[in-house]
Design a protein around this nucleic acid. Structure first.
Lengths: 123, 123
DNA sequence: ATAATAATAGTAACAATTACTATTATCGAT
DNA sequence: ATCGATAATAGTAATTGTTACTATTATTAT
């Protein structure tokens, strides 16, 4: 049975308020101001819990995992220099999972598209 | 100046001989039979070196990074249950980087497409 | 063959994440 | 509202994946 917690609410709210895709540690430091005795483990535990529930998205990349509060599928851009990940407004490719299904003997359920290059800052 | 090494050759050869996408540790144990005093650090160092040279591809995912000897762009399938990554023979989407470029203020250089679901084994 | 130096093995250090444990907060039943 | 059961937390320790360090070995140009 899952109980409410102020910390979890705050973590989700903070993540939703940001358009970047922060790491657990970045969220932790942002929240530390309002919740001085928040624990980093709590941030990790809740982010994992929320991503298991598909309420948020976990993005694995070089270095620390990043998190994204947007639930509808959308695509990302990663800077190969600084590692920052941002959304890209490229329209989601319709039906691609059905098309890909014929090439797989597993069951395709979703897809992730990452564009990679150099961000404005690093150029 | 870059010098030859038996270890590097063996690592690349082993990676090329496999159609899965092993982790550094998996490669290390495979090679250990033929190179009993191979060091895990050597495997990591060479895999990083080879991926910086774009001779191989590093795939970051949940848990340990995985490596792929195929240089031309192609797509992958990740099992959300066991984490294994395999190739999928879906045709590479032509021109997608140019199309995406208009949605980005950075410089898009490549793209990565990952299908996610359940593999045959885990179904 | 020699000298310069890149690469290695082995180990220590590090960073990101998870596990553990005693305490606290939540929530349903009274 | 209080109580009891237990989920969640804070704080810390442990684990995992990876990189850094150092003395030794291997490679290559001369």
């Amino acid at each position: 049975m899952i109980k409410h917690s102020k910390q979890r609410d705050a973590i989700l709210e903070e993540l939703r308020s940001r358009k970047d895709h922060p790491t657990a540690e970045e969220l932790y430091f942002s929240l530390k101001a309002d919740y001085p005795n928040l624990s980093l483990g709590t941030v990790y535990r809740n982010l994992n819990l929320l991503s298991e529930e598909s309420i948020i998205l976990k993005i694995s990349s070089d270095g620390a995992d990043r998190f994204d509060a947007t639930k509808e599928n959308h695509y990302h851009f990663r800077c190969m220099e600084c590692g920052k990940i941002s959304d890209i407004d490229f329209p989601v490719i319709d039906n691609i999972e059905n098309n890909a299904q014929k090439f797989s003997d597993g069951k395709i359920m979703t897809h992730e598209l990452m564009f990679v290059g150099l961000c404005k800052n690093c150029l």
